[in-house]
C-alpha cells in the first residue's frame, strides 16, 4: 500500500523533504513507517523518543495501523504560542 508522509520543522530540515510517498506492507503501523524512515534518514533517529504522529490530520499512536492512501505526519516537539 502507498502512503503520503508529511514532515515538519526540524524533521523536514534533517531529511530535506516536507512530503514523501512510501510503500508499506498491508497492516503496517505508524511505528513501522517511522522505522523505515530512520533507516533511510539516520539523522532523525534521536527523535524516536519524542516524536508525535498523526494519521489523516488526527493525532495517532505509534501502534496505529495505516491504511492505503493515508497521510501520516511526524511531528517533532511543538513550540507554538
Amino acid at each position: 500500500m502507498r502512503v503520503t508522509v508529511r514532515l515538519f520543522a526540524r524533521l523536514r530540515d534533517l531529511t530535506g523533504f516536507a512530503e514523501l510517498v512510501r510503500e508499506l506492507p498491508p497492516g503496517a503501523t505508524v511505528r513501522r513507517l517511522w522505522d523505515d524512515l530512520v533507516q533511510e534518514f539516520p539523522a532523525i533517529a534521536p527523535y524516536g523518543g519524542s516524536i508525535s504522529a498523526a494519521v489523516n490530520a488526527d493525532y495517532a499512536r505509534m501502534n496505529a495501523a495505516i491504511q492505503d492512501g493515508d497521510e501520516v505526519a511526524f511531528l517533532p516537539p511543538v513550540s507554538g504560542g
Binding site: A54, A73, V78, G80
Partner: peptide, 13 residues
C-alpha cells in the same frame, strides 16, 4: 495558551 503550547502542531524557528 497553556494547552496551545502543549498540543498544537506549530513550530517556531
Amino acid at each position: 495558551i497553556e494547552r496551545v503550547k502543549q498540543i498544537a502542531p506549530i513550530w517556531k524557528k
